[in-house]
Nucleic acid binder design. Structure first.
Length: 1004
RNA sequence: GCUCGAGUGGUGGAAUUGGUAGACACGUUGGACUUAAAAUCCAAUGGACAUUAGUCCGUAUGGGUUCAAGUCCCAUCUCGAGUACCA
């Protein structure tokens, strides 16, 4: 019998599906274990070999836990709302639901072929109304909640209303908007409903707020910072403006401290915890209020700043506001107005990213206004500068140049006074940033105090005069929750008199309406503005035609949709009871499964998904919906698989027969474009990318290399555009010597049909010639033409080979290059494994008792593999299996007892072949729950050890000695050995080190 | 700049507490089987010198601790990831 992987894999995949082998029970006496993968976005490109890496690892772990007798929950689903499907819809008119469904089917097919032990009966899709019903439900819960700092948890909004009714809001200790006005109980009770709603919105955990966004009018959408390049959109190059928009926000800042603290309670990778810690960005200090001097401005104003160094308050010599700060226009004096306006305009042109990247340029403008120092009452000039960001803190800083390098540089640059408040410290060259090692001086009541004491006293004194208080500031900002997109969850929200109203949870889901176009409306409203049936009837409690809107019983619905992270922030809980229509999940289900025991996914989600999901989990915990404060006990980051891209090197040149500077004739000129692909060697010899700057070198190059081969009337032409690019070449046409046949590539890419290729000597190459491509390791991605799909490997070598190979590549957490060359190794191993059990005559195994060697090999393997799985070191267990099979083969082992155990050991890694062998061994049920072999150390006991004998730490020879030999006996034996005598050449050893069972080292 | 991670043969990587560096594979070379190929099996494979024995060098670089360092300490370099004037 041959190892026919195709037949075997198809057979067992069918068996598992039909017998629901991996269905997890919500009622079980077994201990639970929940293994989760980050669910994928089903893109049109299908799975590539990078996706399954984490899935294979988690699958091995899940299968291992089943062998250990756990009731394992191992689900899979799809994060199926998202931009690519919408983009495709805009281009083709195809409904995103259709694209998404097609893509999901393809993913499912690919996943099935790899033999994962998912419980598919629990599949979720975030774009499915049965699922997003609960996304909407959670949104409503958030809307109906506020964060009570006294109880330190979210509470129902009704408890807040009760307080307002009885005592107003003065005593409320809540996380809220900053601009809260104080009112009494009587005032509250006298407010009309709308006013009350407005106030409550300032406390709700999800709320409407004006947010400044990057608005791209041409695309009709908001862009993220990294979608903007040089002030225009990456896609299409349209202008982008800053615009205030009313959007839903999530008050994640309420949870900042808990998100930080609870990192200590979860077993997640330290780098991931670090990046969440940095993202939350807790800093302790004080908020200080400065009065703007009334003589300079018409009325008095106050500027609040946050500082981490209130101890240096006597070192303040100026203030800096962000150019966007709301007071700038008010306080600027007429004399300074022109300069300030010019500066604001100049900064507005720079993107936030640009401003942040450029540390060296110091710029700013004086407003002409002064603030009053809270203690000394001295006037302090108020400047604006773009090193202060509007979005952080209050958008204003008290500048202490002696203690902060940026303030110092700013002061030097603008010749502002730099008072020194540190005892015995030289600040003539740079600021003194160290906090701990100094004593405060020139600071009135703070003189002679160290940092910590000075800080406390400064805060105390500030509080006493009503000019500040101790404060903890977080970098973490509330999360914007509105998206101007079609393909996302609709909000369960309608508007009465401009105020948002929640639709009662019993009428959910509010399903996504049909639209004709997926683009924003002509008036700039989100795509849902195109829907004709998108109004809420409060009488019938259903969505009705827009024409019925009367703002009495029928009201307009929210036009934004939710962001991608909404659906992924609780899916791990929904898997516990995914088909429940009455509740997000049953109490029984959540109480049994509790939380995720092992979560595997990429580290790129550190500050997105993984932070938002923790936030929602904590909220649901506060509301008593889930029993755990954190959703995943342990998390492992899988490294990405990189691909080896191939490049051809292109010189793109445009020529024109009129002078570029001759504007008059320029447009009537004739143009020629040449695409020249040059060999790697020529490319490397190009005088750098400086060619454009260094005209002489470039001219030499053209003279030598290009003129002779191109049919261009050079005397009439001027080079106007020159670009050097490395162009991705599809790796499927590159041979193992890194060559492509030029003609073959041109056939695949007709746009390069006319391109000329030059070899190392600058000679023109023929279409039948081979061009050597350059190779570089990059992230695997379709756009880089370097993806390898798992399909062809499954086809050629089978899923078990693929699974083993992906694990064999290296440690799970490390990123590693994909190279299929080694796949024959794991495939060969499986064949060898097979031959241990079966040959042309059928079964080889017998009831023969295992030999001592057989047992030793087996138990060595059991020990190592179990340890490896616990440590997520899957690559080393593949090697261990190879060694085991090599040994058993050379031992000619036929013992059924040994082979049965081996089949179970291999089964988490290569489940198809394991099932088949298990059946061949005579079993009629699946191997999936066969108990994992028990390790017995007695089989590994050795009686002797081959000692390495070293001289001065260098191993010279080996000596087999009994393990029970005493140190003295060992020393005597070694010293008498002829090789020892030869090594010493008569020298007397100074010392002999013997570590029994380990090593012998002779010094001297 | 900061934070984190990494650097070992031609390649992927192994070395779990400081104790035989290079396991296991790929690749390469030679051989067996075959009309031939594939498949399979055997042998060699860090570098240099010597080709029997052996010697020297060798885990990014330079120091250090130690009987003994890929592993620990100090400094430096390179690469990757994240982050970004955070007051």
């Amino acid at each position: 019998m041959n190892y026919d992987f195709k037949e075997i894999e198809a057979k067992w995949q069918k068996y598992w599906a039909e017998n629901q082998t991996f269905k997890a029970e919500n009622n079980s006496d077994k201990e639970k274990f929940y293994v989760l993968d980050m669910f994928p976005y089903p893109s049109g490109a299908g799975l590539h070999v990078g996706h399954p890496l984490g899935y294979i690892a988690s699958d091995i772990y899940a299968r291992y836990k089943r062998h250990q007798g756990f009731n394992v929950l191992h689900p899979m689903g799809y994060d199926s709302f998202g931009l690519p499907a919408e983009q495709y819809a805009i281009q083709t008119g195809q409904h995103p639901a259709i694209t998404t469904k097609t893509n999901i089917n393809r993913y499912r097919e690919q996943l099935d072929k790899i033999g994962f032990s998912f419980d598919w009966s629990r599949e979720v899709r975030t774009s499915n109304p049965d699922y997003y019903k609960w996304t909407q439900w959670i949104f409503i819960q958030l809307f109906n909640s506020w964060y009570n700092n006294n109880t330190n948890k979210a509470e129902d909004i009704s408890t807040l209303i009760q307080i307002f009714e009885k005592e107003g809001n003065a005593t409320v200790n809540a996380v809220s908007d900053d601009d809260i006005s104080v009112f009494t109980a009587d005032e509250w009770n006298a407010f009309n409903t709308k006013k009350q709603q407005e106030i409550l919105l300032q406390y709700r955990l999800t709320y409407l707020a004006e947010t400044e966004v990057n608005w791209c009018p041409a695309l009709g959408t908001v862009l993220a910072n990294d979608e903007i390049i040089n002030g225009v959109s990456e896609r299409g190059g349209h202008p982008v403006i800053r615009k205030k928009m009313t959007q839903w926000s999530m008050r994640i800042s309420a949870y900042a401290q808990r998100l930080l603290d609870d990192l200590n309670t979860i077993d997640w990778p330290q780098p991931l915890k670090d990046s969440q810690t940095n993202w939350i960005g807790r800093s302790q200090g004080a908020s200080v209020t400065f009065n703007v001097l009334a003589s300079e401005a018409k009325q008095s104003h106050q500027i609040d700043v946050f500082t981490t160094r209130p101890d240096t308050i006597f070192g303040v010599s100026f203030m800096t506001l962000a150019p966007e700060h709301e007071l700038v226009a008010t306080i600027t004096t007429p004399e300074q107005k022109a300069e300030v306006d010019a500066y604001i305009q100049a900064t507005a042109k720079r993107s936030e990213r640009e401003r942040m990247a450029d540390v060296k340029t110091i710029s700013g403008a004086f407003t002409g206004a002064y603030a009053e120092h809270p203690f000394t009452k001295k006037p302090i000039p108020i400047w604006i500068g773009d090193y202060v960001l509007a979005g952080y803190g209050t958008g204003a800083v008290m500048a202490v140049p002696c203690g902060d390098q940026r303030d110092y540089d700013f002061a030097k640059h603008f010749n502002i006074d730099i008072p020194n408040v540190f005892e015995g410290v030289d600040i003539s060259e740079e600021a003194y940033v160290d906090k701990e090692k100094t004593i405060i001086a020139n600071s009135d009541f703070l003189n002679g105090l160290p940092y910590k004491k000075a800080m406390k006293l400064a805060i105390y004194e500030l509080e006493k005069i009503g000019h500040g208080k101790g404060k903890i500031n977080y970098r973490l900002r509330d999360a914007v929750f509105s998206r101007q997109r079609y393909w996302g969850e609709p909000f369960p929200v309608y508007y009465v008199d401009g105020m948002p109203q929640m639709i009662d949870a019993k009428h959910l889901p509010i399903t996504l309406p049909e639209v004709e176009k997926y683009l924003p409306t002509e008036t700039g409203e989100p795509p849902l503005g195109n829907a004709n049936v998108w109004a809420w009837c409060t009488k019938e409690n259903k969505v009705v035609d827009n024409s019925e809107i009367n703002n009495e019983t029928v009201f307009p619905l929210e036009l934004n949709t939710m962001p991608g992270w909404a659906g992924s922030s609780f899916y791990f809980n929904r898997y516990m009871d995914p088909n429940n229509t009455d509740a997000i999940f049953s109490d029984d289900a959540i109480n049994y499964w509790q939380d995720v025991d092992l979560y595997i996914g990429g580290s790129e989600h550190a500050t997105g998904h993984l932070l938002y999901a923790r936030f929602w989990q904590k909220f649901l915990f506060d509301k008593g919906v889930v029993p755990k404060n954190e959703f995943a006990k342990k998390l492992i980051n899988q490294g990405m698989i990189t691909g080896t891209s191939a490049f051809a090197y292109r010189l793109l040149m445009s020529w024109c027969n009129v002078d570029f500077s001759d504007h008059e004739h320029f447009h009537s000129g004739e143009y020629f474009t040449n695409e020249l692909f040059i060999s790697k060697k020529l490319w490397d010899n190009i005088p750098d990318n400086r060619v454009k700057e260094n005209e002489e070198e470039w001219n030499n190059y053209v003279e030598k290399m290009i003129k002779p081969v191109l049919d261009i009337p050079f005397n009439k032409l001027k080079l106007i555009v020159l670009e050097l690019n490395s162009i991705h070449v599809d790796i499927s046409i590159v041979n193992s010597s890194n060559e492509i046949i030029i003609g073959e590539w041109k056939d695949k890419n007709p746009i390069y049909k006319e391109a000329v290729f030059l070899d190392d000597n600058g000679n023109v190459m023929k279409n039948s010639d081979s061009y050597i491509v350059g190779r570089e390791v990059e992230k695997m991605s379709k756009s880089k033409y370097n993806v390898v799909s798992p399909d062809s490997i499954c086809e050629e070598y089978g899923a078990d080979s693929l699974r083993l190979y992906e694990m064999f590549l290296g440690p799970l957490e490390q990123s590693k290059p994909w190279n299929t060359a080694g796949i024959t190794g794991t495939h060969g191993f499986l064949k060898k494994l097979w031959r241990l059990y079966l040959d042309d005559n059928g079964a080889k195994f017998t009831d023969a008792a295992p030999t001592k060697d057989n047992l030793k090999t087996l138990h060595k393997t059991i020990k190592k593999v179990a340890e490896d799985i616990e440590n997520f070191s899957f690559n080393t267990s593949v090697s261990t299996f190879m060694i085991c099979v090599n040994e058993l083969s050379s031992q000619k082992c036929t013992s059924k007892e040994i082979l049965e155990a081996l089949a179970i050991l291999v089964s988490p890694y290569a489940p198809h072949i394991a099932e088949e062998l298990w059946q061949q061994l005579g079993h009629s049920t699946s191997i999936a729950t066969a108990p994992f072999p028990k390790f017995d150390a007695s089989h590994l006991v050795e009686s002797s050890k081959e000692y390495p004998v070293s001289f001065n730490g260098k191993m010279r020879f080996k000596l087999e000695l009994p393990l029970d030999m005493s140190k003295d006996e060992i020393e005597a034996t070694v010293m008498a050995h002829e090789k020892t005598i030869a090594q010493l050449q008569g020298r007397e050893p100074k010392k002999v080190i013997i570590v029994p069972g380990k090593i012998i080292n002779i010094v001297g």
